[in-house]
């Protein structure tokens, strides 16, 4: 029996009076690569912000193991947030720091390792994502795909329990996207990290996803749940079918 890592119960998300999604119920299991999918504007990224603890739900709860993310103290929440690694859509690297410094910053803030060890770790994380030799580069000096990988290296800096990806393959060429997918799979396999990916990139979600939830922007709630391949084969909902089989039946 797999252990539940994050549980979402009756979650309603809203900006002011404008409801984005309501009645979301799903569990993310330890070691899964969980996909959040849906069309543009359905609230995928908003859901990510809720899961990360950046935005409070309008109603409902989010549990990390047994802790209710929004019922515990700010300090406790910060502690949970620190165990999350996030790769943002455009990398979100700090532009005034070099790649190595970008990775060193969280290590300097939250560990008491020596400078030498921190530099070693930063080098190693950059090696993991294939960016050896670029330590002294500034984010503005590297390409978009490299920024994403550097963003991943930074997300990995503190050996997170859960890794979140916001549209990892957006703006990448098919080969780079494939490389990133492989990287996500191999990191999951070797570290056992739980991975949550927000995406609508079909090849990528079929390649890496082991579980998923589908958000619909019309009914404003989840309309399907389960491994992406099963959804494609078994889910009767026409919206989900259309979404997942784009171009396959033409």
């Amino acid at each position: 029996m797999k252990q539940v890592h994050i549980e979402v119960k009756n979650l309603t998300m809203a900006y002011g009076d404008f409801i984005i999604q309501k009645d979301l119920n799903f569990s993310i299991y330890k070691g899964d690569i969980f996909i959040v999918m849906g069309g543009n504007g359905c609230g995928k990224s908003t859901l990510l912000r809720h899961l990360l603890g950046l935005k409070a739900p309008a109603a409902g709860d989010i549990y990390y193991q047994d802790e209710n993310l929004w019922k515990i103290s700010e300090i406790e929440r910060k502690k949970i947030m620190r165990a999350n690694g996030v790769m943002y859509q455009s990398g979100a690297l700090w532009s005034s720091l070099t790649l190595a410094e970008n990775i060193e910053l969280p290590l300097k803030e939250y560990t008491d390792l020596s400078n030498e060890e921190i530099q070693g770790l930063a080098y190693f994380k950059l090696a993991l994502v294939g960016l050896v030799g670029f330590e002294e580069y500034y984010p503005a000096e590297i390409s978009g795909g490299m920024k994403k990988r550097a963003g991943l290296a930074r997300a990995l800096a503190l050996d997170p329990d859960i890794l979140f990806f916001d549209e990892p393959s957006a703006g990448l060429d098919p080969l780079s996207a494939k490389l990133l997918d492989d990287l996500i799979i191999s990191i999951q396999a070797s570290l056992g990290t739980t991975i949550v990916v927000v995406t609508h990139d079909l090849p990528s979600l079929f390649a890496i996803g082991t579980d998923s939830v589908f958000l619909d922007s019309i009914s404003k709630t989840q309309i399907a749940q389960g491994p992406p391949k099963d959804l494609l084969n078994k889910c009767p909902n026409p919206v989900v079918q259309q979404f997942l089989s784009r171009g396959m039946h033409e």
Partner: peptide, 23 residues
């Protein structure tokens, strides 16, 4: 084996010519 996996991952990428910054 997980540690070996990570190690292989880190060594997997060929060192790209980054045009080393000349300082």
């Amino acid at each position: 084996s997980a540690a070996q996996g990570l190690l292989n991952q880190a060594s997997a990428f060929p060192v790209r010519d980054s045009g080393q910054k000349i300082l």
